[in-house]
Nucleic acid binder design. Sequence first.
DNA 1: AAAACGGGGGC
DNA 2: GCCCCAGTTTT
Length: 218
Amino acid sequence: MTRKQLPEAMAILRRDVPTWDVPVVRLNAQDDHDPYRVLISTILSLRTQDQTTILASERLFKLADTPQVMLQLDVQTIENAIYPVGFYRTKAPQILEMSRRILEEFGGRVPDDIDTLLTLHGVGRKTANLVLSEGYGVPAICVDTHVHRISNRWGYVKTKDPYETEMALRKKLPKAFWIEYNPSLVALGQYVCKPASPICSQCPVADFCKRVGVQRSR
DNA sequence: AAAACGGGGGC
DNA sequence: GCCCCAGTTTT
């Protein structure tokens, strides 16, 4: 989601507030649903900004966007391609290792159940749930830092632990929302409901929000 | 110049 | 629970 798409997302968000208990954005420009590319770009995205992730993903996928081709690359090539994301020294070997397992153990197909996904080194709950929801269209609640922070600010959950947030949202949210919940809140979280000094005056769900823990806002 | 920012694994 | 991983962006 880019800055340009935000106004449209906000319009949809606003429109849906009265209809849904929790606001939902439908991202019309659906980028990429290939499970392997979702998996790899999510690995790249860990602890890094979105713009950087997009850049690095494009550079890497020009070289390889299937496990077969990825395994032809050596580690330094991958490290060079993904360099700006940081943690490239851990991420590059992980990408090779999970590509090898996907090819050898799963016939070249990214696993589509959470327990198997979690056995991949470098894949935690955030990554696994994103692969399920974005890659396979399987209802899964992906709690990244935006979902965690905003859900708490809304007063929708009350916990420091992202896993608790996931479990709480699983009970509170209708399953039909699960897939869209994450991209909606990511869009909101990047430009409006920011970690520090959120722009509450521009937020389409300011009425809905309890502003738990929000100190300085505009 | 310094702090903030984004998940996961090892121990 | 605490520490490590490494860059970009904001203050």
